[in-house]
Computed example of a mutant assay.
Amino acid sequence: MTLRFPDRTGLYRALVLWFVAATFIQTGSGGSHPLLLAASFVALVLLWVIPLLLVVGVAGELYAHTVDGRA
């Protein structure tokens, strides 16, 4: 009997990107340079969108399992 683990590479990449965005917001968003302001905006969007996408993905998987009858 072998254990099979689902491929969670995308999840790990999303979490790393989320931590990078959070670190950038905390440490590097104090300047007034236009590129820095744009990067701060992108980091803020990522900070909110990544958790939302992860929650929607998990909810979709749970819904698929209940519809298929594999609950």
Results as ranks from 00 to 15, higher is better:
Met1Gly: 08
Ala43Gly: 01
Val49Ile: 10
Ser40Trp: 02
Gly60Asn: 12
Val16Arg: 08
Thr23Phe: 08
Ile50Tyr: 00
Thr27Phe: 03
Leu44Pro: 01
Ser29Pro: 01
Gly30Gln: 06
Phe19Val: 07
Arg13Glu: 09
Gly57Val: 06
Leu62Gly: 15
Phe24Met: 06
Thr66Phe: 14
Leu46Asn: 03
Ala64Met: 15
Leu3Ile: 10
Gly57Asp: 14
Leu35Phe: 03
Ser40Ile: 00
Val49Met: 07
Asp68Ala: 15
Phe5Cys: 10
Arg4Lys: 12
Ile25Glu: 00
Ala39Ser: 07
Met1Pro: 05
Gly10Phe: 02
Val45His: 01
Leu54Asn: 01
Gly31Asn: 03
Ala59His: 13
Arg13Gly: 05
Leu52Trp: 07
Leu53Arg: 10
Leu15Cys: 08
Glu61Trp: 13
Gly10Lys: 05
Leu36Arg: 04
Gly28Trp: 03
Asp68Ile: 12
Thr9His: 08
Val55Lys: 09
Ala21Phe: 00
Gln26Ala: 11
Leu52Glu: 05
Leu3Met: 06
Val58Thr: 15
Ala14Asp: 09
Leu17Thr: 09
Arg4Asp: 12
Tyr63Phe: 14
Pro51Val: 07
Phe5Pro: 04
His65Trp: 15
Glu61His: 12
Tyr63Thr: 15
Val55Trp: 12
Val45Cys: 03
Leu3Asp: 10
Val49His: 02
Gly10Tyr: 07
Leu15Gln: 12
Ala64Phe: 12
Thr66Met: 14
Val42Lys: 01
Leu44Ser: 09
Ala59Arg: 14
Thr27Gln: 09
Asp7Cys: 04
Arg13Val: 11
Ala43Lys: 00
Val56Gly: 04
Leu3Glu: 13
His65Glu: 15
Arg8Cys: 10
Gly31Ile: 04
Arg70Pro: 10
Tyr63His: 13
His65Asp: 15
Ala14Tyr: 02
Val42Pro: 00
Leu37Glu: 08
Thr2Gly: 05
Pro34Asp: 04
Thr66Glu: 14
Thr2Ala: 06
Ala71Lys: 13
Val56Ser: 07
Ala38Trp: 00
Leu44Phe: 02
Thr2Phe: 03
Ile50Asp: 01
Arg70Trp: 13
Gln26Lys: 12
Pro6Asp: 14
Ala22Pro: 08
Trp18Asp: 05
Val49Cys: 03
Gly28His: 08
Val45Gln: 02
Leu17Arg: 09
Ala71Tyr: 12
Ser40Asp: 09
Thr9Gly: 05
Ala22His: 12
Pro51Phe: 06
Ala39Gly: 04
Thr27Arg: 09
Gly10His: 01
Pro6Arg: 11
Leu3Cys: 06
Leu62Tyr: 15
Ala64Asn: 15
Ala39Gln: 06
Ala14Thr: 01
Leu54Phe: 02
Leu54Gly: 00
Val16Cys: 07
Ala14Glu: 02
Leu44Ile: 07
Leu47Met: 12
Tyr12Pro: 00
Leu37Gly: 00
Gly57Gln: 14
Gly10Arg: 10
Ala43Met: 00
Ser32Val: 06
Leu53Phe: 04
Ser29Arg: 01
Pro6Cys: 11
Val20Lys: 02
Ala22Val: 13
Ala39Lys: 01
Leu47Asn: 05
Ala21Thr: 01
Ala38Met: 03
Phe41Arg: 05
His65Thr: 14
Pro51Arg: 02
Val67Gln: 15
Val42Cys: 04
